[in-house]
């Protein structure tokens, strides 16, 4: 019994492992699958080309995509096609990351944010505006007006995959 109490006292005196959330937050690991983010290129154009492969890959049928065509007067992504409507139902999502694997342009990624809550089922439908990341430094918000003859490829070339 004494030994047991000694263990308790030792622990009592030692450093606590408790993390005082929410004042302290533990950094997440590299491949943490949290809230989705729709990425942009450095110039501000969206990476998402509205191809619905993420929707097709999703095992929970959580993603809904409607596509539309880019014009040079109103350009959202560097290719021919962009996602006019992009919604993820967070209640359906199982955070498996298949959408991230399926995406051909590395547009949809699962980020680090895990602090999600909503009080209403309707609020759980995250729209494109909620998912798009903010415009990076030096970039312009979408839709953009672009000069003709620059963005002529159908699908923008993919960068090397990075973790």
């Amino acid at each position: 019994m004494f030994k047991g109490l000694l263990t308790t006292l030792k622990e009592w005196a030692g450093k606590p492992v408790t993390i005082q959330y929410p004042e302290e937050k533990r950094p997440v690991r590299t491949r943490f699958k949290g809230r989705h983010v729709l990425k942009r290129y450095e110039n501000g154009l969206e990476k998402c080309i509205g191809c619905s492969l993420c929707a097709a890959a999703c095992p929970a049928d959580a993603i809904f995509v409607e596509a539309a065509e880019n014009t040079d007067e109103e350009r959202y992504s560097p290719g021919e096609r962009y996602a006019r409507v992009y919604e993820i139902n967070m209640l359906r999502c199982i955070f498996c990351g298949f959408c991230e694997d399926a995406c051909p342009t590395e547009a949809i990624v699962l980020g680090d944010n895990y602090e999600l809550s909503f009080t209403d089922r309707h609020q759980s439908i995250y729209t494109k505006e909620m998912l798009l990341e903010p415009v990076p430094e030096g970039g312009k918000p979408t839709p953009q007006q672009t000069p003709p003859g620059v963005y002529v490829r159908a699908v923008p070339a993919m960068q090397d995959p990075q973790d």
Partner: peptide, 11 residues
Amino acid sequence: HPLDCPICDKG
């Protein structure tokens, strides 16, 4: 053949 499958209507 171009790598258009993600945006091609035929895909």
